[in-house]
Computed example of a mutant assay.
Amino acid sequence: MIIYDLACTAGHRFEACLGSMFDPNPDCGCGASTSRVPSRLNLGGAANAGPGRDDMPTTWHGTGQGDPATLKAWHGAMTKRERLEERYPELAGDRRPILAHEGAFAGRPLRAGDDLVPTVAKAAFGKEES
């Protein structure tokens, strides 16, 4: 069902649910014919998935030296994020373990499951294995 804003030729405005965008417009309660009008535009809102795993503190100082309120807040935020990632797996990103992340792999870490020989050859020598 799609909700459309409609206006009749007599000036009345109302909403109606239609099964498809190809369905004809319903008549107004006054009997006049109707046409679809643009809905209001909402400029104030924005979608935000909240903090991700990369935003989570990784040091003792980042957690406020183990501050219980900070730890509880981060635990709640990450629990909420896990539920969101279960519904929308594309938000989870690449969760494979990182095998190497320094030196030649600083720009793109080597992850478990990567094809090892071409990845190492490209990182170490700047070209694909031949």
Rank of each mutant, 00 (worst) to 15 (best):
P109L: 05
A10T: 14
K80T: 15
R108S: 13
V120F: 06
A100R: 00
C30G: 05
T58M: 08
P24Y: 10
S20L: 11
D67M: 10
A7E: 11
L41H: 08
D114V: 01
A73Q: 04
F22L: 11
N42C: 10
A121I: 02
R108I: 12
L43I: 12
R13A: 07
F22P: 14
Y4Q: 03
R40E: 13
C30P: 03
T70P: 03
R96Q: 12
A77N: 01
A106H: 08
R81K: 01
G62R: 05
G113I: 02
R111W: 08
S35I: 14
L71S: 03
M21W: 11
P68C: 06
R53E: 13
T119M: 02
H75V: 01
M78Y: 03
S130P: 07
L99F: 06
A69G: 13
M78S: 06
V37K: 05
Y4K: 00
K127F: 14
A49F: 12
T63I: 08
G45R: 09
R96E: 13
S20I: 09
C28H: 01
M78H: 09
A92D: 03
L99M: 08
E15A: 10
S20V: 11
D27T: 15
A10C: 09
P97C: 04
L43R: 11
A124G: 14
Y88D: 12
A124Y: 15
T58Y: 12
R108E: 13
R40Q: 11
T70G: 06
R53P: 11
G45E: 10
R95V: 04
A100V: 07
N48F: 08
R40K: 09
R81C: 00
P68M: 05
G50Y: 07
A124C: 15
E90Q: 11
P68G: 03
A124F: 15
G103Y: 06
G107C: 07
I2N: 09
